[in-house]
Amino acid sequence: MGRGKLAAGAVSVIVLWWAISLIAGARIVPSPAAVIPRFLALLPTVLWRHALASLLRVVAALTASFMVALPLGVLMGRVGVVDSLLAPVSYLLFPVPKIALLPVVLLLFGVGDGAKVILVALVLFFQMLLAVRDGVRDIDPRYLLSLSSLGARRRDEFRYVVWPAVLPRLLTSLRIGSGTALAVLFFAETFFTRWGLGLFITDSWMKVSYTDMFAGILAIALLGLGIFAAIDFAERRLCAWQRHSAGGV
């Protein structure tokens, strides 16, 4: 997304926020004029640490789900037996709201960071797994034939065909999954946590410190925006070919 459009979107959100603040009252919904200075004051003191903790959990979840979903998705896409074994399991588990698994994950993996990361990773994992599986399945066999005709071996297929072919889908799944992942992370961070934006927001809420709560919401919104921007950047750099008009092989 262009900077101009992003700035226009930010202005629209601030105007809307202001309007709601005027209608609902500044005690319930503090105005941007109160929240933004508070956000800037909290950021270098405590907010950065909460934001960093949340970011690290997201990155860890992303890495873990990527490491498992990519090879498994490729295997499911290329080997029929693996797909017929794993597809029914993933179809059953994919629609389960992962937040419902929070108690199970806490019981299995304890109350530390590991459980929170696993919960978020579960959200991203199924999105990635099915995206990679479908991406691999949809690869035009002529690309593999073409690669083979250039003298490539089977081990070259992943690097030159499978990876570049599935990457756009993988990034799209990540974009779709990251919103849900942040929502799950927010909830998971309200339990047994010292640092995290989820904790900061709920803690401020409980203390009826709505200006701080909104500063936290602003921080988590910016964190989400940062993740989206990173995915957009990766897409622009790694999938530049997609910006050209669609065509055949």
């Binding site: 034939l145 073409s146 005709s149 070919w241 050209h244 092989v249």
Partner: peptide, 30 residues
């Protein structure tokens, strides 16, 4: 994949994710 043989497939078989230069270089890199 015999190195002595060059093949041009129907509809060219170019990889859309590589530039023209990368497509040409690929056979040598492999």
């Amino acid at each position: 994949g015999d190195v002595r043989v060059g093949v041009i497939l129907q509809q060219y078989g170019l990889f859309p994710w590589f530039t023209a230069r990368e497509n040409v270089a690929l056979a040598l890199r492999i």
